[in-house]
Amino acid sequence: MATAVATAPLAGHEAVAARYLEVDPVYAETRSIRLLGFVFFLLSDCVLFGAFIFAYVYLRISAPTWPPFVGNHRLPWFDTAFAALNSIVLFGSGVTMHFALENWKHLNRQKFYRWLIATIILGLGFLLGQAHEWTGVLRGGVTWPGSTMGASFFTLTGMHGFHVFVGVCYLTVLGLQARRGIYTGSKYFGLTAGTLYWHFVDVIWVVLFTLFYVW
């Protein structure tokens, strides 16, 4: 393999794949098993969100009016403009995390740390935006115990926000581990898993944004 790499210089994805093949076969096999396990973890999280999303959709389509009435007061719609802005902050963090991993794969450590820090900052920005959004929703009279709309909204966005918070902590730990030299140019499964998790959190938000703000 080393001869093949030496005679034909590789670039891009091929270079990254060739580095994997140079690693000991035990690691390559372990990595495949870990990756499969991590994908199953993400799928199990999909089931968790799916159950709550199904409950929300059921409650909404079976309600006589939406937003529902609480007494004589009809609850307000959620703020689409701010949610669109906050969504872009989260989606932007997905792109920066993708750049971080790509730079790690191509052995550009400085850029990796810059993009990772940008991702963490954008993740924190999204959480602050969510706190602002929750404050506005509560001011509008939508509360957790007060209506099915509030219960669904706070449960689902709260669960998602918790996932984002865990993701921010996870990425911070990954950055510190990378700094300590735990990952190398050919062994970086933790970073791959972190990136997949962060993309997953983004995609869950696409669904929640559609259900709460677009529908």
Partner: peptide
Amino acid sequence: LMAVGCVLA
């Protein structure tokens, strides 16, 4: 899917 999210936003 993230790109789809951007289209929605």
